[in-house]
Nucleic acid binder design. Sequence first.
DNA 1: GTCTATACTTGGATAGAC
DNA 2: GTCTATCCAAGTATAGAC
Lengths: 205, 205
Amino acid sequence: MARPGDQTKARIVAAALESLHEEGILGASARAIAKRGDFNQGLIFYHFGSLTDLLLAAVDELSTQRADRYEQRLEEVSTLPELVRVAGELHREDMEQGHITVLSQMLAAAATDHTLRAPMRERFDPWIEIVERTIVRALGDTPYAQVVPAHDLAFAITSLFIGLELFLNLEDETERDDSGVFTTFELLGSMLQAMLTSLPPPAPA
Amino acid sequence: MARPGDQTKARIVAAALESLHEEGILGASARAIAKRGDFNQGLIFYHFGSLTDLLLAAVDELSTQRADRYEQRLEEVSTLPELVRVAGELHREDMEQGHITVLSQMLAAAATDHTLRAPMRERFDPWIEIVERTIVRALGDTPYAQVVPAHDLAFAITSLFIGLELFLNLEDETERDDSGVFTTFELLGSMLQAMLTSLPPPAPA
DNA sequence: GTCTATACTTGGATAGAC
DNA sequence: GTCTATCCAAGTATAGAC
């Protein structure tokens, strides 16, 4: 399956991810990426056609890297507050490895680059679905399954992931205090717990 | 107080805001801004010194524009779920007028441009404080005042504002459905309501 | 498949005439 | 305070030798 050139393509994608992480979308130029990966700049256009297509390939790489991990961790989840706790852990992993920076930078670019919009939506939909499916499974056959809007909740949680990253990045590395993130997710967890406890269960049939 | 040149400075700032909104940080170049405002490109550097300083001045303009409106609307708020409802309305206003696009684009830029970090943090802190003060006021002297982490909640709500904007921008204008936003804030409102109802009130002194 | 060299465009910023 | 003209660095992308 491995064709000649695949190794180079992988190197280019890796350098693109690194550039997006370290220098953001503003610094992810063809020249900067090539310099970082120590290969010739023209190779980007030979292998990917355009810089935009390389950046999208980088997002794809990230997605496949993380999809397994997410599925695996979320499978153990059986209650909603548990989901929030595991989501907090996954969020921390992604923050540490810079994944969310890459995604938020690409999302910001997609906000005004219309050619990026549809491709980025395609790449995010599966992630929202993973969260949504987990929510539905966590609710199981409890009476709340029909009351909680799973898709909207999944959408909100995913949005929170991205928003938190942008704000946490504002803090200085030296003074950064991770407790804020944990607190946020713990807060969300107890809110969900409370909501489920106090929601009037639908009338029995 | 109005010095000569102030009118031009205002025009430049207005054009910068427009550019950030329409073309994002990637399209907010000195030349593009000058073309949009129909003034000479050199004026940006004469009046603001650098493009970065102009963009920060644009964020300042936005902040002062909106601060009054926020204070005014949030003053009427006296319960936490009410806060969430009003926050949802303010979010809609900001979305419609493109303010959040401007902020999210600048936040994305600040993530990797270290010279933007401290200035952007300075400009966001007051906003988080406004939300935090409102939360504290809404909790008033209820027994929950000591249990709810007001700062973290304010931080999370503000992050959600930004994250939602980036995601909602992915949808096509034609197919965009605002109900998602409202649902998200209504959801948050009922979660808060539920949390307050079910939280064990602290033991009386 | 990979490299060098280059075409062409756009970017931030400044000098100097008005 | 504003304009024109210009410098120079950096951007995307391509042609052609190897």
